[in-house]
Structures are given as structure tokens and as C-alpha cells.
Design a protein around this nucleic acid. Structure first.
Length: 839
RNA sequence: GCGGGCGUGGUGAAAUUGGUAGACACGCUAGACUUAGGAUCUAGUGCUGCGAGGCUUGGGGGUUCGAGUCCCUCCGCCCGCACCA
């Protein structure tokens, strides 16, 4: 990726060497620079560049490139934190203050692939929901880029603000401009008198996460810069503000505020008393923005009277003609941040020489190019470290290993790659894991081709699954593999969650010196008491009063506590039977509660429960090995299938596994009796037995196709119940049945297969063919409804015609009773389904 | 806030194309066999009502001969939101 660039002309990734050749002959006239759209040079200029200038320029084209991104910086911990390590604006560990800090980072230019990532979704067998999520994440929008010049007389700096808008038709409704607080122009345009206010506001914004900035739309914040921009058509001067609702990474990091047509702009204008220009005539009521797209545009110069699509076209054409803007496609998708300041992650094969990054495979020095890792010293391996402490100035731990960082060619990159680096291509490596000259041979990837079926969770919808797709396209473009989509079919499986258990500690603050506690240990309350107290102020007071009376030396309640609450504490699920706590086991596990007092309800301590991800830290882990030891792998496997549809998440609950276990025992008893031993006979099967077998073959075949394993298990249960009732022990039925059940209960199937006298494994046996003739019926019990409510059942031949059925139904005494003498208005007969009489 | 998903008995669920709601299990109740039962078998089990019957798929409304399924609307829950991986 470092050695490649994206050709917008050919719409594919290409080697960077080809770009260098192009620059040498024609400069970049035919290849707009994705990193800097205004960069232009010819061949002569290119040749005159220094080595460093050339490399800097190429960096703006590379698919793996360096840029700047904001990270959470925690001064106290001396490290960069992940989003989920920042809680309520402070570090999760230690509660230290954090702020957004700009840092140099590696990126992958996934935005260049945006269009293809949308287009080729069509050829994937993924759920519509999944495709929808990816489309929305990529967020293609068509609109215009518009330049507003700043008013030199009123602004500190001169120049222009470029905005992206999906509604160029509303350009006459612009009443203000808003820049992201991080926007590079802000420093230059802020007037002296607004300097302090702007600084203060930016300090506030630094503490805000992007999520908060997007979510909390009701609370309007912002700050005027003192600068004004000039409307391109009316020459009206509009104030330039900064506000957190404009994000630096979206579009150009600046918007034109059209309060009459956009809700957030409207709220902003109202909040800061900015006069609102109405461009929708009567459709805009002054109270809320008119954001529907069905009005005509009014009060808008040459756009007045046009509908929205026409006005959009006209506005863009006028902007282009005036040289003030252009048509533009924008994507919400951002280039993927590819640096982490962590130890665990693939190290970059990058060396800095005089601050300029080179690939370790670029022949930098003899020792590097012939080092241990092969000719190009790939792969670069993580060095051993004594400590995982962060490096200086927010660098990763690798920065501390100076021996490793400093090579005779230059300094190594100390960032590492993120988790999705490996997850984007591991499936390719699996195709050729022993290869030590390339990631996978073309022969191997051509043979194995795409992943046929990928089972994964929706949590990967817009991360891993999008990055893998981009990665695959890049490798395809560069000729390393022969397919451009990694996962042909995708199925989302649900998660088996944990069910956590909680006890509740009475947590109180005593008023000073007022009381002595009679307790030796903490006070734990059963769930029912806590629930009642939390639901009801009176109950809460009553409970506290009672606790004061029972457990404290001073029962003058009003003088006892300054406050109290019920603090939940996780307990290991193995000490809880259902919801009832084994108090002794708990005390043993947590010695600090050995002297605790437990307040019970009905003689039991009832725990609280919550469904969460299964995790050691939540003490809610159930180990599958224990289940397998108790019930066997077949029972475990079938029970997991039986729990419900494959794509639904649910908490693990061992209750119910008995049913599946009983089923397998009953299934076994068709073949072997506890006392009599093997009971399989060679008798001829009856029609009824064959019907059961073939209904089962049909159902299982269909269910497997649609991954409906829970209903398959049900069908096996129905089959075994019916065969048991018939007392069937016939080889003609039971031998094929063992083959059908094999994918669901392979161990028992294999054993029965052997006992039936077969050589070879049951997995090699061919799946029994379904034969229609065994299951066809010639009559059907029809539900007969009056006005849609089923009142009785009547049996008719399947080939009976409507007239004879109608006559029979209307003559039926049950039906006559329900008709109550009224004449039927309509008779509905759906062959093979039902009958409905409308009166 | 935005995007996606889900909501059916005491519990897990089924109903595949708009056609008998609750299949199959768990649990529970009663019984049989048994020295014993955490084995096995039988019957019952959505709610309500003595009964005929009535009610019932998160709430409300609509389309239809017929709605768990389609449409509108409201409520609730779960997942993702770019440095958890």
C-alpha cells in the first residue's frame, strides 16, 4: 500500500513507480493530487524537486500515507487513549483530564475506493441490512463546493472559505458561515476582540468527543470569530462562526448556514439571534426549518420560482460560470487511521532517513536489505520489550527500544498497526500459510478463491468488513490476487451472551460521631428490597429506618446518615442457582465479606441479573468444556442449534439442555435397548414409517439451505417421537436416519453407523434422497372459518372442486349453527390452505 | 443525534409466499412403573370464564374475506458510530 497510489483515471491502485514515470514526463496535470487538490507541477518542476520534496509529494498520493489526526491525549498518564478508555471526559483509569491532540499518523486512502465499495455490494450475497449499513457509512452525497471570500475590511486575514453543501439551491438563504473549531483558517481570521472568546471556546471543544458533538444537538454552542464572508451572488456580508456541530473531518470542515432550510442551522441562528432569510415563502413558518424537498425556491434572485432539482442545477452552473464553485461528490467515509501508539500490533516496515519515511525494502543499506528477515527484511518483527510503558511525547512503547529504533540506515517507525490490519487479509494467508517469500502465492489464492461463506457479527459491519473489502480490491488491482471481493456470502450469527449476577451493598455515609456501627462487616440486601426502595421514596426511607434500628447503636435515624445508596457488586455466576445466592460460597470467594450481614427475602438472598457480553471481568463465564463433560459434545452442539435462529443473540441458559439430551437418548433407544441390547431388524418398513423418514429428509434438507438449524432439531424430535410411538426399529428407516442426523450429532451418528455394520465413516455416506411418493397425501383437513375465525375442520380430497366443497361446507351442521340463518355473502376457498365463509 | 436490528405463553422459540398463532422443547401440575429416581412412560398446561364463549403476537390506528406477517404512528430494548478488537 505504501508503494502504490490510486489512479482516478483507471480507477485502480497502481505501483508508485508508474506515477514517478508519469511525473517525469508530464508532471501531475492528468492526475489530481488526492492529498492536495490544488497541487500542480509539470515535468520540469518535478525534476527540479529535491529528493525530500519528491517524497513529500508522493506521500500525498500513496494509498498508505501520513497525515494528521486528533487523538485523545492524557497528560497525566503520558499516553494516547482509545475512545472507550475515555469516559465522561476523563480517563477511565484514574479519572485524569484528557484532551484532543493533533498527531502525525498513518492512514489508508480508503476514500479513493468509496465508489467501488458501493457499486460491488450488488454482487455480494450479504443481508440488505448489512449492505445498507455500509452504504450509509460510506455516505455518498452529491452537491457542490462553494468558495466564499472573506471580507478584507472586516476580517483580520484575507482569503476564502470553501464549503461543501448538498443543497446549493439554498445558497440565497445563507445567513452565516460555520467553521469547525479546528479549522485551519480560524487563527487567521479571528479579530483581536474575539480572540479570547474563540480561545475559550476552543478549549471547551477540546474536551468534547465527536460523539458528543454529534449527539447533543439540543444544546447549541458556538463562538463568533469577528470575520465576515461575502455571499458570491448577493455580496451580502455574513458572519463567520465556529461551532462544535461542524466537524473538521466532514466535507471541508466548513458549512454555509441556511437556517430556513436546515434544522441545526435554524437552532443555531435562533440561539445566537442571527436574522433568518426565508427562501421558501409560505412553507417556512418562522418556527422551524423547512427541510422537505418539495417546495419551490423563493426570494433567491435568479433561482426564484424554480423547484429544488432545477434550482440545484442552476445554482451549480452559475457557480461554475462565475468560477466560485464546482460540482462535487462527497463521502462521509474518512480515510482509515492506521497508526496506534501501542506495543501489540504489526510494526511498520518503515525507516526514516532525515525525517523522510522509506520502505525497509527500498534497498536502504546492506545490513537492512540482507537482514534476518530476508532480502527486504520482511516481516519486521516486534522487538522484545522490558516494559509496555508508553514512549516519550505520546509515542508508542517501541520508541523506548532505542537499539531497535536506530538502524544504520535511519530510525524505525515506532507506531504499530491497528487490529484491522491483520483481519483485513488473514484469510488470504490461510490459503498459503507456509509461504516465506510472499503473503500467499497467486497459485494458492487462485485455487481457493474467495471465502464462500463468512459467518460474523454485525459489530463488524462498517469496520473490518469494509476494510477487508478495500484491501482485497487493492491487492486485486496490483495483480496479487484474482478476485476483488473477499467474502462472497455473509451470515451474521448472534452472540451467546452471559447473564451476570449482582449483590447489593448498603453504602452509607454517617453523620460525624453520631453513631456507632454494631456491624462487623458490610450489609447486603436482597434484590426485592433494593428494587422497592429504588422505586418508592417512602419504602426507601422505611428500609433505611429499619436498618438504622437493627444494625446501628444509635437509632435516632434523622441524625444517623448523611446519605446512602445500594451499590451493586458482581458475583461469580457459579455461586448463584438461578437467582439465589449461595452465601457461604460467596463469603469464601470474597473474604472481605466473610462478616457481612445478609438481609434476605423469604429466607433467600436473591441476586440482580443483567445480560451482558460474556467476559471474565464480569464473572459470568460459562465454560463449554464443563457442559461437554456433563452431557457430551453432541448434546452441546445440538442444544446450541436448538436455542433459536442462528442470527439472534441471547444469554446462555443451561436450563433446557436436558430436553436435547433426552432426545438423543430416545434416538439411541430406537437402535439399542437398555436390557435387550441391539434391536435393529430387517423388517420391511410401513408406509407410515417411510412417510416420517422422508418428511424428515425433506425438512432437514430445506432447513440446512436456509441455516435454520433450530427447526431441524425440532424435526428430528418429531421424527423420533413418531417412530418411538410406532415402535419402529427397522434398518430401512434407521440407517438413512443416522446419515441425516450426522451433521447435527456426528458422534452418535458415527457410532450407530459402525454398529449397523457399515465400513468407513458416516461422513462419507451420501445423504439419503428425498422421494416425493412417500409423502404425498390425497386429502387435507381444511380449517373452516366464518368471517376469518376458524370454527371447525373438514376433510376434503385435494382434487375436490370448489362447488362440491362449498355445498358440503354449507350443509355442515357446525357451520349452519355459526351462520345463524344468515346467507353467506362470499365463499373463499384456497386450495390446500383453508376455507372462509363471509356472512 | 445518525445508521441498523429486534419486540409472540412462566422460559427458549415455531409459523418459509397474507391463510388453523404458540409446532418442538424447558418449566410446572397430576398420575403410572419402582427399594430408589436427577431414569422411563401417560395426561394436562397462552389468558379468562361453570359453560357456550370471549380475549391474545409491545400500544394505538389502517388495508384485507383473512394480518404475528403489509402500511402509518407511538413506546421499549439491543448493536455500531471511525483508537475495544
Amino acid at each position: 500500500m505504501f508503494h502504490s497510489w490510486y489512479s482516478r483515471k483507471e480507477n485502480k491502485a497502481k505501483p508508485i513507480s508508474e506515477l514517478i514515470s508519469i511525473f517525469e514526463t508530464e508532471g501531475n496535470v492528468n492526475h489530481t493530487c488526492p492529498g492536495d487538490e490544488n497541487l500542480q507541477f509539470d515535468a520540469a518542476a518535478w525534476k527540479a524537486y529535491s529528493e525530500k520534496e519528491k517524497r513529500d509529494c508522493l506521500m500525498q498520493y500513496r494509498i498508505a500515507y501520513q497525515g494528521y489526526a486528533q487523538v485523545w491525549w492524557c497528560e497525566a498518564l503520558g499516553t494516547v487513549l482509545a475512545n472507550d478508555e475515555v469516559v465522561n471526559g476523563v480517563s477511565e483509569r484514574g479519572g485524569h483530564p484528557v484532551e484532543r491532540k493533533n498527531m502525525r499518523q498513518w492512514f489508508l486512502r480508503i476514500t479513493e475506493f468509496a465508489e467501488r465499495l458501493i457499486d460491488s455490494l450488488d454482487k455480494l450475497e450479504w443481508s440488505d441490512a448489512m449492505k445498507e449499513m455500509q452504504k450509509n457509512w460510506i455516505g455518498k452525497s452529491v452537491g457542490a463546493e462553494v468558495r466564499f471570500s472573506l471580507s478584507p475590511s472586516l476580517s483580520e486575514g484575507e482569503g476564502e472559505v470553501t464549503v461543501f453543501t448538498t443543497r446549493p439551491d439554498t445558497i440565497f438563504g445563507v445567513d452565516f458561515m460555520v467553521l469547525a473549531p479546528e479549522h485551519e483558517l480560524v487563527d487567521g481570521i479571528t479579530t483581536a476582540e474575539q480572540q479570547n472568546a474563540v480561545e475559550e471556546y476552543r478549549t471547551y471543544v477540546k474536551t468534547r468527543s465527536e460523539r458528543e458533538r454529534m449527539s447533543e444537538v439540543k444544546q447549541v454552542t458556538g463562538c463568533f470569530t469577528g470575520a465576515y464572508a461575502i455571499h458570491p451572488f448577493t455580496e451580502k456580508q455574513v458572519p463567520v462562526w465556529i461551532s462544535e456541530y461542524v466537524l473538521a473531518g466532514y466535507g471541508t470542515g466548513a458549512i454555509m448556514g441556511v437556517p430556513s432550510g436546515d434544522e441545526r442551522d435554524h437552532a443555531f441562528a435562533k440561539h445566537f439571534n442571527i436574522p433568518i432569510t426565508n427562501i421558501f415563502g409560505e412553507k417556512y413558518n418562522g418556527e422551524e426549518a423547512y427541510s422537505a424537498k418539495t417546495s419551490t425556491i423563493e426570494n433567491s434572485g435568479f433561482l426564484s420560482g424554480m423547484n429544488i432539482p432545477d434550482a440545484t442545477e442552476a445554482a451549480i452552473n452559475a457557480l461554475v460560470k462565475a468560477g466560485l464553485g464546482k460540482r462535487k461528490v462527497n463521502y462521509k467515509l474518512r480515510d482509515a487511521g492506521f497508526s496506534r501508539q501501542r506495543y501489540w500490533g504489526e510494526p511498520f516496515p518503515i525507516i526514516y532517513i532525515d525525517g523522510v519515511p522509506y520502505g525497509t525494502d527500498e534497498g536502504l543499506s546492506p545490513s537492512l536489505s540482507k537482514g534476518e528477515g530476508g532480502i527486504s527484511q520482511l516481516p519486521v518483527e516486534l522487538p522484545y520489550v522490558e516494559s509496555y510503558k508508553p514512549g516519550p511525547e505520546g509515542q508508542g512503547p517501541l520508541a523506548n527500544i532505542t537499539d531497535w529504533v536506530n538502524t544504520d540506515a535511519g530510525q524505525r517507525e515506532t507506531n504499530t498497526m491497528p487490529g484491522y490490519a491483520g483481519s483485513s487479509w488473514y484469510f488470504l494467508r490461510y490459503m498459503d500459510p507456509g509461504n516465506n517469500t510472499e503473503f500467499a502465492s497467486r497459485k494458492a489464492t487462485d485455487y481457493w478463491n474467495q471465502v464462500d461463506l463468512y459467518i460474523g457479527g454485525t459489530e463488524h459491519a462498517v469496520g473490518h468488513l469494509l476494510y477487508s473489502r478495500m484491501w482485497t480490491k487493492a491487492l486485486y488491482d496490483l495483480g496479487h490476487i484474482g478476485f476483488d471481493e473477499p467474502f462472497k456470502k455473509l451470515l451474521n450469527q448472534g452472540m451467546i451472551q452471559g447473564s451476570s449476577r449482582f449483590v447489593y451493598i448498603f453504602d452509607y455515609q454517617l453523620k460525624e460521631e453520631k453513631a456507632e456501627l454494631k456491624l462487623k462487616g458490610p450489609l447486603l440486601l436482597s434484590l426485592g428490597l433494593v428494587k422497592e426502595a429504588l422505586n418508592n421514596v417512602e419504602a426507601n426511607m422505611k428500609l433505611a429506618r429499619k436498618l438504622a434500628d437493627d444494625y446501628f447503636s444509635n437509632s435516632l435515624f434523622d441524625e444517623l446518615f448523611s446519605g446512602w445508596n445500594f451499590r451493586p457488586l458482581r458475583v461469580d455466576v457459579s455461586f448463584v442457582d438461578g437467582l439465589e445466592l449461595d452465601i457461604e460460597a460467596f463469603k469464601k470467594w470474597r473474604p472481605e465479606y466473610a462478616d457481612a450481614e445478609f438481609i434476605l427475602e423469604d429466607g433467600k438472598y436473591i441476586c440482580g441479573a443483567e445480560v451482558e457480553k460474556m467476559s471474565k471481568s464480569k464473572y459470568n463465564v460459562v465454560n463449554p468444556d464443563d457442559i461437554v463433560a456433563q452431557y457430551g459434545a453432541d448434546t452441546f452442539r445440538m442444544y446450541e442449534m436448538f436455542l433459536g435462529p442462528i442470527d439472534v443473540s441471547k444469554p446462555w441458559d443451561t436450563k433446557g439442555i436436558e430436553g436435547v439430551h433426552r432426545f438423543l437418548k430416545k434416538f439411541w433407544r430406537l437402535y439399542a435397548d437398555e436390557t435387550k441390547g441391539w434391536v435393529v431388524t430387517d423388517e420391511k418398513a410401513t408406509d407410515a414409517e417411510l412417510r416420517i423418514l422422508h418428511k424428515t429428509i425433506k425438512k432437514i434438507s430445506e432447513d440446512i439451505e436456509r441455516f435454520s438449524f433450530n427447526t431441524s432439531v425440532s424435526q428430528f424430535m418429531i421424527c423420533v417421537n413418531e417412530l418411538s410411538t410406532l415402535g419402529c426399529h427397522k434398518r430401512e428407516i434407521l440407517e438413512p436416519l443416522a446419515v441425516v442426523i450426522c451433521p447435527f450429532a456426528p458422534h452418535i451418528a458415527e457410532e450407530l453407523w459402525q454398529k449397523l455394520g457399515n465400513s468407513g465413516s458416516v461422513v462419507a455416506a451420501s445423504f439419503p434422497a428425498f422421494e416425493d411418493r412417500f409423502v404425498t397425501e390425497n386429502s387435507k383437513m381444511y380449517p373452516v372459518a366464518i368471517n376469518g375465525k376458524t370454527r371447525t375442520e373438514m376433510e376434503f380430497a385435494l382434487d375436490a372442486d370448489q362447488a362440491s366443497i362449498e355445498a358440503a361446507v354449507l350443509a355442515d351442521e357446525n357451520i349452519i349453527k355459526w351462520l345463524e340463518g344468515k346467507a353467506p355473502k362470499k365463499f373463499i376457498f384456497v386450495k390446500g390452505k383453508m376455507i372462509n365463509v363471509v356472512v
